[in-house]
Amino acid sequence: MIKYEGRNYSLDQNETVLDCLLRHGIAPPYSCKSGLCHTCLMRATQGTPTSDSQKGLKQSQISQNYFLGCACVPNEFMDITLPNSEAFRSITTVLNIAQLNDSVLRLRLKKPDNFNYFAGQYVTIYNNNGIGRSYSLASVPGTDDFLEFHIQVIPNGTVSNWIKQAVSVDDSITIGEAIGSGIYTNDNLKQSIALIGTGTGLAPLYGILRTALLKQHKGDIRLYHGSRSSANLYLQDALQQLANEHSAFTYIPCISGAEPLPEALTAGRANDVALKDIVNFKKWRVYLCGNADMVKASKRSIFLAGASMQDISADPFAHA
């Protein structure tokens, strides 16, 4: 028996989840039916997917119970949802709003009791008209008892301006569930990690970084945070402090605009500086977040520079 989007379906002997749904006239996205194309990616919110159905998935997907419907003959009850379906919303409370720099707000929300997430994932925040925008989590579960977001206030940005102008401490706010596969997986503690982000792309990287340090990651961790001007950097002191405390961690703030720079700042775009610095990304784990053009271009150039596709997580922001 499986449950899919709230309804129960019984399986025939040796029937896959995908075949069962198709037989019942449900058509989730699918293509090759051979476990190759990953079009029929699904997630179990209850029950454990078979290992056959997780072959070829990223470690981060496996740890979140993602599986391929065409390759899964369940051996127990499974409650199944499509990835990114917004099945769950919670109402929570605003704990704190602070200014991180001229255009970035730090929003802290109470973590709802049943809310589970991994550092580096993102959440949709809804305004009072039900319009939602996705924001990355900067907090770390277990360490921070709140949910933290870095909100870039964009001119005419519907949700970001609503947060800036209309939201205050103790207000109620609606959020979706945490999704996204750009998370830290401690399957290889010795792997070198490059965290490359622009603007508020720092938020998920900050969560991933602190998770890696918490799990006593042994490999090098290099954070390249890019910004147009030094005034738009943020969390510099906290990051420099972490770098001082952990010899394996290096913080490299990068400024792409023309301005005289103190020694602590590097001139150039974060992705260019990282490529020049690391050169060969073979065996590196890479996280890319922020400006969509930067993320897309870097994904390709870093893959060509030797990183395995499995080891690149890309999180392009629509407005960053």
Binding site: S34, L36, C37, H38, G56, K299, R300, F303, M309
Partner: peptide, 11 residues
């Protein structure tokens, strides 16, 4: 999309 493309290459 590079990931979809990689999945196709795998196929």
């Amino acid at each position: 999309d590079m990931e979809q493309q990689a999945a196709k290459q795998k196929g």
